[in-house]
Simulated scan of single mutants.
Amino acid sequence: MNEIKLYQETHIPGPWEEFWYQYKQHKAAMVGLVCLLIIVLLAFIGPMLIEHDPTVQFSESLLIPPAWEDGGSRMFLLGTDDLGRDMLSRVAYGSRLTLGLAVIVVFIATIVGVVLGAMAGISKGPVEFIILRLMDIFLAVPSLLLAILIVAIIGPGLLNTIYAVAIVLVPHFVRIVRAVIREELDKEYVIAAKLDGSSPTRLFLISILPNILPPLVVQITLSFSTAILDIAALGFLGLGAQAPNPEWGTILSQSRDYIQLAPWTVAAPGLAILITVLCINLVGDGLRDALDPRGSQ
């Protein structure tokens, strides 16, 4: 016992230990993290455990209510829609599609945003001016409206949805990366690297990038919620995923005419979007507080 106590008193926590300790202090973030992990796990293994295909129509079971309501069936735990398709399987498969699209969108936006932000932050003159003015144009338009305009121009579909939502997210990454880089450029370690003859590319990748990861990680996390909402909104408007793809927004769009007759057909995908976005935002808040404890005070 004395050895354990001595170790605890003399042990200096590493950066990951310190980060995890700070994150655990945010109780709501811990709840969000657990719920988000469950959602991701269900997105991967849920469709394997459900016996019904999301596109199969049971013509004798139209608008069956959930199993716990009168007239419900254990065969369809969340009920069926107007075509007799199992709502549980559609929401489960839709989670894989919606979350998968969000991951692709945020990945593309992060890569493009970091590159453009680095160019604007390190270089000065026409390059910086052009990048910033272009980003200002994008930021002047509400994100969802901009995504709708882009999809309306290039056409509906999953691939075009990815392009549209990624373009909407890029300006936020550019702004935050450029701002952090400008703060880092005046620090001694960057000046020393410049005097050592580092090229702009090496200066960014080796010296600056590791030090801007905390705000970048927070922005990546919060961008997931925006991506999910925009993807679902485009699907709801008929500009994103097209039927019979069981994307959450598309399911909502197909069920809106039955919101009074069969509210479970809207409640299931709507709650899925709400809970997922809420969990991601809670995780983002926890990351921000853990990575920058002084900024959260």
Rank of each mutant, 00 (worst) to 15 (best):
38 I>T: 12
35 C>I: 03
58 F>N: 15
44 F>P: 11
51 E>R: 07
47 P>H: 09
48 M>R: 07
62 L>Q: 10
34 V>W: 04
60 E>S: 01
56 V>A: 10
32 G>A: 13
52 H>E: 06
56 V>Q: 13
32 G>T: 13
41 L>G: 05
49 L>Q: 06
59 S>Y: 10
37 L>C: 11
41 L>N: 08
44 F>L: 14
51 E>Q: 10
59 S>H: 03
37 L>E: 03
53 D>R: 08
53 D>M: 09
61 S>H: 07
52 H>N: 06
43 A>M: 12
52 H>R: 13
42 L>H: 11
58 F>V: 10
33 L>R: 06
50 I>C: 11
36 L>T: 00
63 L>F: 09
59 S>W: 06
51 E>N: 03
47 P>R: 07
50 I>K: 09
62 L>Y: 02
47 P>G: 01
63 L>H: 12
61 S>W: 15
63 L>I: 02
61 S>I: 10
32 G>F: 10
53 D>E: 14
57 Q>H: 05
47 P>M: 02
49 L>P: 05
55 T>E: 01
36 L>I: 01
40 V>Y: 08
38 I>Y: 03
60 E>C: 04
64 I>S: 05
39 I>G: 09
55 T>R: 08
59 S>L: 07
38 I>H: 08
42 L>W: 05
33 L>P: 07
54 P>G: 00
48 M>D: 02
53 D>H: 03
43 A>S: 14
48 M>S: 11
53 D>P: 04
48 M>I: 12
41 L>V: 04
54 P>R: 00
45 I>S: 09
52 H>Q: 04
35 C>P: 07
53 D>T: 03
38 I>E: 15
37 L>R: 04
49 L>R: 08
54 P>M: 02
62 L>R: 12
41 L>R: 09
62 L>S: 12
37 L>A: 04
41 L>C: 11
33 L>M: 06
46 G>R: 07
50 I>F: 11
44 F>M: 08
63 L>W: 14
42 L>M: 14
57 Q>W: 13
53 D>S: 15
38 I>P: 06
36 L>P: 00
56 V>F: 02
32 G>I: 13
60 E>V: 14
47 P>A: 09
45 I>E: 00
43 A>D: 15
60 E>I: 03
52 H>S: 04
64 I>D: 01
62 L>E: 14
46 G>V: 05
35 C>G: 03
40 V>N: 12
62 L>P: 01
43 A>R: 05
53 D>L: 01
64 I>W: 04
63 L>V: 02
31 V>D: 02
40 V>I: 09
46 G>S: 13
58 F>G: 06
61 S>Q: 01
56 V>T: 13
59 S>C: 12
41 L>Y: 13
56 V>L: 09
45 I>D: 12
33 L>H: 14
52 H>V: 09
59 S>A: 04
40 V>L: 14
46 G>Y: 11
49 L>E: 02
44 F>S: 03
60 E>A: 08
